[in-house]
């Protein structure tokens, strides 16, 4: 998921940086003081999630949890992922500072899109059903992120078929694991702190009641 420095072409890097700046702007505007601790908490979760290697099959993939961030934060996923990736680049040398923009965009765009989609399925009356649907959606969000990584490699002149095959294949087990983890967390939150979903967006409050 983390593209290293020196792999991508300059236009791709600039486009990624542009998208990230716009996303950060919208995200920062939509977050009020009450939501800041949530964004920070999920940013910390994202920061360590990449260290968790899921040893299934021959692939070596790690958790991303961008689906979970999207569901809980909406546009706030942009700042959360940006901060997490920035610290990963500095402390772990994952990715890099020049690829920070494109990496943020690759992981945050699916988070926001699927987060908005997933809100339609959150229901307190059917907690198990909604957590399963959200788990599946978060797995799709991870695949979407993998597809964006393959696309950015393709636009930089790499063979798209090879890259996408590799990336998508490597992410099948991780998507399954991530779907299960996300479904578990959503189920837990629906039980313990259901207002977290209502706090995200005022529209959802009416929907839930």
């Amino acid at each position: 998921m983390h593209i290293s420095e020196g792999v991508l072409a300059v236009p791709v890097l600039l486009a990624g940086a542009g998208v990230t700046v716009i996303g950060l702007g919208i995200g920062l505007k939509k977050i009020d003081a009450k939501k800041v601790p949530e964004v920070s908490l999920l940013s910390a979760t994202f920061f360590v999630a990449s260290l968790i290697h899921v040893p299934i099959g021959p692939s070596n993939a790690h958790l991303v949890l961008n689906g979970l961030l999207g569901v809980l934060l909406g546009w706030g996923a942009f700042p959360a992922i940006f901060i997490g990736l920035f610290l990963q680049a500095i402390l772990f040398q994952f990715g890099g500072l020049t690829t920070l923009g494109i990496n943020t965009a690759n992981m945050a765009i699916p988070a926001v899109v699927f987060g908005i989609l997933a809100k339609r399925f959150i229901s307190l009356k059917h907690p198990i059903f909604s957590s399963v649907i959200l788990g599946i959606l978060s797995a799709v969000a991870l695949f979407f992120a993998g597809l964006l990584v393959a696309l950015s490699l393709w636009f930089s002149g790499k063979s798209f078929l090879l890259a996408s095959k590799l990336i998508l294949l490597a992410h099948i087990p991780i998507a399954v694991v991530e779907g299960i983890i996300t479904a578990g967390i959503i189920r837990f939150l629906l039980k313990v702190k259901p207002e977290i979903f209502g706090l995200m967006d005022k529209d959802i409050k009416g929907f839930m009641e």
Partner: peptide, 17 residues
């Protein structure tokens, strides 16, 4: 929450070569 996640696998695998 992050510490709970860490329990899965402390010996970290990184996407870095």
């Amino acid at each position: 929450m992050p510490l709970f996640l860490l329990c899965f696998n402390v010996s970290s695998y990184a996407h870095r070569v």
